[in-house]
Design a protein around this nucleic acid. Structure first.
Lengths: 265, 265
DNA sequence: CAGTGGTCTAGACCACTGG
DNA sequence: CAGTGGTCTAGACCACTGC
């Protein structure tokens, strides 16, 4: 790229901020970060959809008027964040929760013996799916206002016929308009895949807070355990692009034959 | 690097395996992976110690007879795995559990209100530290043989005067010869920092299995809770270089004012 | 075979740190 | 100011995929 050309094609230059502006941080941003931002925009806008391939590195380099290496570094970071998937010889693809042989990417509960494969698929039972008004707490976690419309769904997951997970989840009403218990029960595959294909909402990142709790009477009944059986309480907030929260999920996990697995590094 | 030169300096070439060898995988390994391996060797051998800086990228490039970019990619991966830390303008340093303002890197228990900073340091009480023979299970997890010598230590961590974590840990006897309850209680700072400075054992990675449990009478007494208080059971195996297990730790976490935090991506 | 991502190089220049 | 890591380029070649 010449020093005189204005690049990347459609965004401001990366040069040192020559203006005044007082105490603002210089905010130097390398070219590849700007390219990364442009690619992110195309992902959000739906120009490239989950499962599809994005243009080749050479094509993107031409489009943004930068070298292949710069595009490469931008894609590297997006791939490290699991937004893109590289496949040598084939291309770079938009990550998806569907058709990905790593199903249930966000579920960390594992059987004590064997792995998710050997255990077989979970049986899912939808309890209900209702439209509600957000409480102050739900609203805060979903970045809504108290009283805004939200969808609440509850379900039980069973492994080998044994109820193991009781989940309660809240979704902002507007983006998920039209979601019903029927659609939830009829859909095969991960719930996040349904969100992608039916509502165009792609979950990208999530945070979980884990505690040990005892169930109340209703919870104990649904999981078919005694009232003194300790359970893992897992509160998850899942985010789409740009750190926008799109789901609050509260799960109770039975951990007598399963455990929550985590890797620290 | 010329196509005729033999490089990297002290290891086999990366070229396609022209030999016979039957069904062995082709096992093509890029140059930067080999460089990464050589750097890892120097870390293990103690040529560069925790907290110290390693040679500059240019120096390493000269040493291994490759370009700076190749060394850079090797270091990038080691930095992504938290084995090295880059500091622009200063150099690249061997990561350490000591003197790192990210204390307790492997502890995921957070106060519900505020963060680790505002909460203040934990009070630590060593209960005991004994030399034992490994049971079959302990031996399996630490890659030892049943009956091998192991050290067992137990302690309580309190936050704001409140007992919150009860930990029991096992260490292989040989590398940790000489560890006593006194040294554990007198040492200030993270336990993993003591392992580094006193025993040359650097923990690099860990895996945790989490469950909800009820305490037995002894555990309830030490944590000053009732026998029906649900607790998080956290079983951790920590590894040094080369995936060698070096510690088994079983923790019970009180989660009424704290939670285990995890990030999914 | 052409097209893709993956590796490697050599060189230029920039941003940050400390003497 | 010199030395470090960080960015960017241009070009060559390699490994993998699928036609």
């Amino acid at each position: 790229m010449n020093s005189s050309s204005s690049s990347p094609a459609d965004s401001a230059s990366a040069g040192t901020d020559g203006g005044s502006a007082g105490l603002a941080t210089p905010a130097f941003s390398p070219l590849y970060q700007q390219i990364k931002g442009l690619i992110l925009q195309s992902l959000q806008s739906g120009e490239w959809k989950p499962g599809e391939s994005i243009p080749s590195e050479m094509d993107l380099a031409a489009r943004y008027r930068v070298s292949q290496g710069t595009v490469r570094k931008a894609i590297d970071e997006l791939a490290a964040e699991n937004l893109l998937v590289r496949r040598q010889g084939k291309g770079t693809f938009v990550a998806t929760h569907a058709e990905q042989h790593v199903q249930y990417r966000f579920l960390r509960l594992m059987p004590d013996l064997g792995d998710r494969q050997t255990e077989g698929p979970a049986e899912r039972t939808i309890i209900d799916c209702r439209r509600l008004r957000a409480t102050a707490e739900i609203a805060r976690l979903l970045a809504l206002r108290t009283g805004d419309s939200v969808l609440q769904a509850r379900r039980v997951l069973s492994f080998a016929g044994r109820p193991t997970i009781l989940e309660e989840l809240w979704l902002p009403g507007t983006p998920f308009k039209g979601l019903t218990a029927e659609r939830l029960s009829q859909y095969l595959g991960p719930m996040y895949a349904l969100f992608e294909t039916e509502f165009g909402v792609r979950m990208v990142r999530a945070e979980e807070k884990i505690r040990a709790v005892l169930p109340d009477a209703a919870q104990a009944a649904l999981l078919k355990v005694g009232k003194t059986t300790p359970l893992l309480s897992v509160e998850r907030v899942a985010y789409t692009y740009n750190d926008v929260p799109m789901e609050l999920r509260r799960g109770l996990y039975l951990t007598d034959t399963h455990h929550y697995r985590n890797v620290l590094s």
